[in-house]
Structure formats: structure tokens, C-alpha cells
Write a protein that binds this DNA or RNA. Structure first.
Lengths: 204, 204, 204, 204
DNA sequence: AATGAATGAGGCTTCATTCAT
DNA sequence: TATGAATGAAGCCTCATTCAT
């Protein structure tokens, strides 16, 4: 008599499914109420699991925060690593920009979670390492463009990247905060203006 | 040479002294650990007062957060309101930039406190009103430059402002996070690149 | 002979057990130290639960006080509502008196809690409503006796009730305070004397 | 040059005056908010003295509560001791009753303070001793009347006294609580009914 | 002696974490 | 393995008391 599927018959979800449910619920609540404002029982309820179940997958709230953080940051890394450097510079730039905008639109909570800074006190060494690891990749793209003379050379690539990233993030943070409503053409214009930071500046 | 003794004669150290000590300590700890991570006893200890003393000056933690917030935000308003619009555009822009950099250098904790967003759940109506009141002033400066044809017109001033502000903030956030070391010439180059966002872009 | 095992099978000791333990412990400590003098940790300790457990059943100290109050006051209402008005007046009166004495003997802390007045600042609308609802019923009994000419008519029923109730309460308050030892015949005599307040007075 | 009156010129009140001011303020606030609800700074403010000044006259809040208690209880003792036993019994009873009513009307806060029970946890040995000492005096009056055959003999005097006192107190407590409005004739009728407790009961 | 600012112990409450079922 | 009731440490805040002026 075959029995390996009883648990499936009973409807028990696979462990990974529960783990994802917890991550999703945590992200939602972190984005809504902040990391400090999110209680473990509230996360459990949203994930439709018992409070104790969370601790089967994550040893502490800190670990859960870091897991959520890593998941989002890894998505960002994927996006940023996919630079198509063989294309024309502006086209490649527009490509990254578009992928980032897609991410913001598809995962608003993920973006908001990263944009809020209240997870910082929770981040462990691994998370900080990932944070530090992402930027160099993209910086290389700009370094290449500087070498080609497309991008202004008076700016180190990591500084330029900090400016671009800050501009991008704050654009959508302002939208979320209710200070802006962004149309598609606003976003396109913002993209072009941001690209303007890269160009050799002919100051009037 | 007689020092003015009035305050000494009066005895009772002026209350403002302790109040400022509390505000300073709170700012320090908020910047270090976030608003949620800062306990009132820890703030009191840093301020070298008893816990109860804080409540003589601020009726609650929320009130203290708002007081810290208003103090910093008013400094920012002063800086941003001092746009010298009669000067050549780039000179005026450089002026604001310089004043902002001075602020960041003089009050790194204040800047960090504002940049972290975990105070948002604490802000009261007054604080939100001030927040909403600051940006329009600066946006007007860019609107004027657009009118004069100096600044690109495909971007609403508030969108442009969001980009510039984000670039500026993230530049120093990256430095604080240890991702960058900024020399004066880095900062100057960043300033010029940021100005590049304002210019009509002739995309190559 | 099988004992019903349902509750044991169910495991999780019924929540009512802990809730009652908290109510009982709270009543004890309220009666001993007054409501203000009772700390939540002390109540938890007496109930042999963790402090936090109280808050699973009662959202605040105020709610706990009201729950204790309602439980006792409802017992009193049951007693007072059971007037057997069809009996001879003195027999009916003796009946209520006996039931009240039984209550005082069975639940001395409950009686003392109600007799102390320091719970008043905690009472919510529901509790006040119950308080206001109890007296009219008993007052009606005396009003009926006045109509029949059994009870003196120079006294409004609610005034008479206040006198009787005060006499009864203080009798046992004095015992609790150690000013009196009450035998059964003392209590019977007190009952008859109190009934004397109801009678037409022929003053010598 | 005479100088002993300088302090009077300066308007400084005599120490006793301040002490009385504190007692009066404390009584007011105790009666309004309960003993636990009264903070020492609030009492000081009402008394128009500095907080520290209270501690010059009373070593602690407990001591202050006891002082207030003793002052009121001593007034009550004066009233109750002034039984004019040589008069006709009912006239003597009416006399005490009237003096008590006068006290309630003249010092409503004092009466309310005593009637509220939240000072009990504060009372020290002296206060408890005074409490125990007052009643016997009045009990003697009733014992005499029993001996004369005026008052029912099936009741020990101290039990009778407990009933009378409870009736009296609750009459005015009910008024204060808003359950009753008392006219002069209500009070006279209540007095006569209470006297009815003393009479030999001929139960119908 | 008088003041009131300062103090810190202690109370109420929340919530991350544990554990019996 | 999953649950959620139970726990108690820790946070915010009050207020009796002290003490510098």
C-alpha cells in the first residue's frame, strides 16, 4: 500500500512553502509597520502558521529580518548584474533602469522594506557583506564607460553610482510618501536626467 | 575682568542646558540605534540625567522624537531657504550644495537621523507640516530656472528635486556606511554631476 | 466507570481555568491591599501565572478590575433579585438577609472588595450600568410594603434602602476590622433591629 | 530697633499656618481623587507651597495621610463624645444626629475622605488605635439606654452602633454618589427610622 | 526655612521566545 | 512537525522623595 503521499493528501504544505509564506508575510508587515512595529505573532497570523512555526525556520526575529533582507537584496543583485554592457551605453543604462522600475512596481513592499532603514540595527555580517558586494559590479559598468570616454571622468565610479542609486531610490520613496505622483513619462524623464549625471558636464 | 555672574547668582542652572543635553543625547542615540532601538533610560544616561528628568522637558518619547526632528529640520530649512536666486544658476546651486555639505559635516548625527526613516511613525502633525513646507521653496528655485531655459523642461521641478535630494543624501549615506571615502574633490565632482541632472540632456 | 476524557484528550487545559485563577487572585489581593495597592505582577504571582498571562485574558488592569467587579456584583444581583415578595414581609426580609449573610460568609473577599470603594475610578460604563440597575429592584420591594402599610411611609424607598444597606455592610465591615465578633444570634438580632427601621415608629 | 516682626512684614506665614494649608490641600485632593490618585506635587501646588516644604512638616505621604485622618477622626470624636445623656433618649439621639449632619454639611471633603476607604493601606498604629477608641464611648450611651429599658436588649451596644453608623454613613454616601437627593425632611425621616433600630421590635 | 528641579524605584504593558500538547 | 498559550525581560512612564540653591 503506497503511503508516501499521505501528507500531501492531508493538504500539508511542503516545508519550503511555509518558509516562503513566512517570508512573504514578514515582508508585508515589515513594509507596513516597520521592522520594530511587526510582532512575531502578527507575522505568524498573516502567514497562517502558528507562532512557534516561525522558529522552526528562523531561529530569531533577527534571522527572519536578515532572511527577508537577503531575499530582496539578491533580487536587486540579479537586476543590477544583468547589465548588457555590449549595447550602446544609454541603451544599457535604460535597460537597467527599466528592470529596476519593474522591480519597484512588482514588489512594492520589497522596495519599501529596503528603502525604510529600520532593519539596519538587525543586519548581521552576511547581510552587510552582500550589501557591500553588490555595488562593485555595477560600478564596473560605469568604469568601462569612463574608459571609453562616454561618462565623465572627474567622478569615481562608486561615487557616481551612489548618486544614481540615491536619485532612483528617492524618486520612488517620494512617490510612496505622497510627495509625488509619477507617470510613465515622469519616470522616463527622470531616467534621462539621471543619465545626465554621467555625461561630461558643460557647465553654462 | 568680571564675567557676567547673573546666571551663577541665580543659582539653578538654566533649564535650557539640561533640555539641550537631552536633545543632544537623544539625537546621538537615535542616530546610532534608531528611534525604536533607543530606550529612554539610555538617552538619560547619555545625557547624564535621571530618566525622570527627560519627562520634565518632554512629555513622552514621541514628543522627544518630534523635538529632535524639528530642531534638525529647521536647520535644513534655513539652509534650503537661503537660495541666492539672483546669482548665476550654477553659482546658486553650488552655494546650496556647500551649505548642505557643511551641515552634514557639522552635524553628522543630525543628518543621519533625518536620513533614517524610523522616526516617521512618531511624527506629529506639526512635524509633518514642516516636512511638507520645506520642499516647495526649493522646487520654486528650479521652476524659475526652467522658465529661464537653464534647466531641462521635461521634468517637473518636484521630480527633479527628488532626484537631486536623493543623490545628495545617498552620497553621504554611502560614506557613513563605509562604502565610500569622500574627498573634497569627490564632493565637488558629485556636485557638478548632480547639476548635470538639471541640464538639457543631449543624449549621445 | 469511565470518566469523561474529552477535556484531557483535548490537552490544552481549558482557558477558563487560568482566567478564573487570575480573577480569584486579583480579588484576593484587591481585598487585601486595595485596587491601587495591587500590582499586576503580585496578582500574577498569586495566580501562579506569568505576568504576561494576565494580559491574554484581560487587556488591562482596568479591565481586570471591572471583570472582578462584575462577577461579584452579579452574585449580589442574584441574591437581591430573589426577593420572595409573596411571603409574609418579615419572612421575605429575613430571606434576603440570610442570603446576604451567606454571601458574606462564602465570599468574604468579594464582599470586602465591593465594600472598599477604591475600585470606583476604574469602573467602566458597563459596570456603572449594572450598579445603577440593581437598587431599583429591591427598592420596589419596600415600595410595595409601604403601599400595604407594613413599612413606614415617611421615608422614600431608596432612602430606606440606603439605610438598610449601610447597616448591613457596616455590620460585617466592623467584624472584618476586628471591632466586633459576630455570633449567629448577633446577626439575627441585627437583622431584627434593621427591620425595625422599616416599621412605623412609635417613639416612646 | 525691634525686628522680631520682620518675617510677618515679609508676609511669611507662621509654620502652623503652612502645616494647616498642607492638611487642607491634602484633604481636598484626597477627597477628589483618592489617596492614591493624589500626588505630593499636586498637594503642594494646591497648598501654595513648594513640594519640599510638605516634607518639613510630614516625613512621608503616609504620615500626611495619617495626619489628615487623625484630624478628621478627632472632629468626629468630639461630635460623638458630646452625647447629652441627661436628656430624653430620643432627644439625645437627635442631638448627635444633628451634629453629625452638620459635620457632613460643613466638611463634605472630610466626610468623603473618611467614607472612601482607600486610605486604609496607609493607616498606622496610632490611627487604628483612635479608630478603635471612638466607638466605645458612644456604645456606652446605648448601653445605658438598654439598662433603662428604652433600647432593645437583644443587641450588644457595639453591634447596634455598627448598624446605626453604617446607616448614617451610607445615607450620605448614596447622596454623594448621585443615587439620592436628600431634603431636610428626608434626613429627619432617616433619623427617625434609624432610631427605630434601637426600639424593642414588635414584629408584625 | 523654603523651593522645585532632579532622581530612580516601581508600576503597567508588550512581545520575542519557549514548550507542553 | 505544528501549534499557540505561557512566560518574563525590558520598555515607557509616574511620582514619592531628596537636595542644591
Amino acid at each position: 500500500m503506497g503511503m508516501p503521499k499521505i501528507s500531501a493528501v492531508h493538504g500539508k504544505r511542503e516545508p519550503e512553502v511555509k518558509q516562503q509564506a513566512v517570508l512573504d508575510a514578514a515582508l508585508d508587515i515589515f513594509a507596513e509597520s516597520g521592522v520594530f512595529g511587526a510582532s512575531m505573532p502578527a507575522i505568524a497570523k498573516r502567514a497562517k502558521v502558528g507562532t512557534g512555526t516561525i522558529y522552526r525556520y528562523f531561529p530569531s526575529k533577527e534571522a527572519l529580518v536578515n532572511a527577508v533582507y537577503l531575499r530582496e537584496k539578491l533580487m536587486l543583485r540579479q537586476i543590477l548584474e544583468a547589465v548588457q554592457a555590449h549595447l550602446a551605453p544609454k541603451v544599457a543604462f535604460d535597460g537597467i533602469w527599466k528592470r529596476l522600475v519593474d522591480y519597484v512596481r512588482r514588489r512594492p513592499q520589497g522596495f519599501r522594506f529596503l528603502e525604510m532603514q529600520d532593519h539596519l540595527p538587525y543586519l548581521d555580517a552576511d547581510s552587510r557583506a552582500l550589501e557591500a558586494e553588490i555595488l562593485p559590479g555595477v560600478a564596473g559598468f560605469f568604469a568601462g564607460l569612463q574608459h571609453e570616454g562616454v561618462v565623465r571622468r572627474d567622478l569615481r565610479p562608486d561615487v557616481l553610482l551612489a548618486l544614481i542609486w540615491g536619485a532612483f531610490v528617492n524618486l520612488f520613496k517620494a512617490e510612496r510618501g505622497g510627495y509625488l505622483r509619477l507617470t510613465d513619462s515622469d519616470i522616463a524623464a527622470a531616467r534621462d536626467a539621471t543619465w545626465g549625471m554621467c555625461l561630461r558636464g558643460e557647465q553654462p
